[in-house]
Design a protein around this nucleic acid. Structure first.
Lengths: 301, 301
DNA sequence: ATTACTTACGTATGACGTAACGATT
DNA sequence: AATCGTTACGTCATACGTAAGTAAT
């Protein structure tokens, strides 16, 4: 098999057109280099040089081979340099799971930051609900998850990424918006509402239940949905009010107004970043370090 | 330095995920292959595999390296295959000199034929007058010349490629075109004419001198030019008549008519293909063989 | 016990360097 | 004589295969 030493020898001689100088450049003596070239020519079955009184000249075959030879050496160098970057987390592929709602808030910033800081790390983004992300983390389908708490399970670690207030979603024309008095939890009592499903959207379901319990109110749940944007559609359709994370602002949903509610500040919606701890993954670990905020992000705007 | 055996070993193990089977594939025993991988890892300073009870699995670095590793092996194979094609004349670069006039006739056909028959031979075309081509052949600037005879000089060989009639070039409105009688050499006696320079366009100069001497006529040379298209411009400008090779037809020069002359048939203009014989150049030699016509070409149309 | 990778060790192939050689100006 | 490339040859390193070792089911 062709060896890179042979190829490097060939390139040196082709550039110097002088075995002696080429050998010096390679820190060796002439004879072995001379033999190396001969062996290379024998292996290829092709004469690469014409031997003249005044050194060597490349044959047509030699000229053709020179380009490929240089390419081989560069590729070998580059490949070595590249692979050495992997354990530093500077190179690799990281699959990231995210929930639909995080896409409105954190995902854009994260991708921007990651690609700026680690231009040679490829991000593969896959939308999935929080429960599916936990499974995907375990079986290795994703390396990193952006999901709603709680994150439980052996070998999983997570950090809080985003903390955002919940807002009331009302039809834009609703009188509560104009009569001046600020909305409170008490205003939700017996009000027709769009609620989140206990299964499929456990996180928001439990969060809202806790909030209403604390406010001692009992809304009139008319529909149960799993997605924030579905809830907003139903509000626009007049089914009732809803409560959504402030990230929903970025959806710019016409016909629905999002307004703060006194008493809901104690129940912020949270997003966590989660990953497996059982074995290191350089690129993922570098991303985790780079993306962990010193304190949870507040929604922008 | 990285060796291709190491790389091939790595690829085999990465594909089998089993040193034993990989070794079998490479017709060797496990231990040396195992050591090869270890050495590769030591050289790269990076772990490529995780050793488990159930064989090996690729690390992130291993996955990243696998692509480059395959590329290296392919490049080595391809480079070897390519270089072996050179001595068969199937691969290489051939510089071809040509005179402006051959571009109108033969050059197009030649390029078409050459690229069809030898798709991997690169043609470099350079326009130069015949005398310059002879020099360029000698110093290796061009490998092949398409030029006017005579081709002299040691180490040069040539074959006749094109033989084309000379035509009279007259202003399109000239009465000689309509009065019915065919043009003869005698009609040129004392006629104002555009002539070729004895230096710079020796070939046409001498050819025409010989023709007029044979016809015992003495035209009135008003201007001396080197290029066929310059001659045609001057004809159109009314300076006088000219004599041009029939290839000039392809210039479609408005305002100038090209018509045969009885007596000029004995003085065809010729184009030869010339090359050095002192040492073989596979791609050029293959072209010479492919392009040498069984008999000189007549101009098309 | 079986499976699979690694370490140990003796052998042989191969590559280096020194020295001698050959060819050309 | 001087310059370059090649051949000859002795030495050392590298890499192989066999065999033993280690770790995990």
């Amino acid at each position: 098999m062709l060896s890179l030493e042979q190829v490097a020898g060939f390139v040196a001689v082709a550039e110097e057109l002088h075995v002696g100088r080429a050998a010096e450049r390679l820190s060796m003596t002439q004879p072995p280099l001379s033999r190396r070239i001969q062996m290379l020519e024998r292996e290829l079955g092709v004469l690469l040089f014409e031997r003249t009184r005044r050194g060597m000249t490349l044959t047509a075959a030699g000229r053709a081979f020179l380009m490929d030879a240089r390419r081989m050496l560069h590729l070998a160098d580059d490949a070595a340099a590249r692979v050495r970057r992997v354990p530093r987390g500077e190179l690799g592929t990281v699959s990231v799971g995210f929930t639909a709602a995080t896409a409105y808030t954190y995902l854009g910033q994260m991708v921007e930051l990651a690609t700026r800081q680690f231009p040679d790390v490829d991000l593969v983004l896959r939308e999935m609900v929080s429960a599916t992300q936990i499974e995907a983390l375990h079986d290795g389908t994703i390396d990193l998850g952006l999901l709603r708490p709680p994150v439980r399970g052996t070998d999983l670690r997570s950090v809080l990424i985003v903390r955002e207030p919940l807002l009331a979603a009302l039809p834009a024309a609703h009188p509560a918006l104009t009569d001046g008095h600020a909305l409170t939890l008490a205003d939700f009592d017996a009000v027709p509402m769009v609620m989140y499903q206990p299964t499929g959207s456990t996180y928001f379901h439990d969060l809202l239940r806790a909030a209403f319990a604390a406010g001692l109110v009992q809304p009139d749940f008319r529909q149960f949905v799993t997605q924030v944007h579905t809830a907003l559609s139903l509000v626009r359709a007049g089914v009732g009010w809803a409560v959504v994370p402030s990230a929903a602002r970025l959806l710019s949903f016409d016909g629905v107004s999002l307004i703060p509610v006194r008493g809901l500040e104690a129940f912020p919606a949270e997003v966590e970043m989660a990953w497996r701890t059982d074995r290191p993954q350089p690129a993922r670990d570098a991303l985790v370090t780079a993306l962990t905020p010193s304190s949870p992000l507040r929604p922008q705007r």
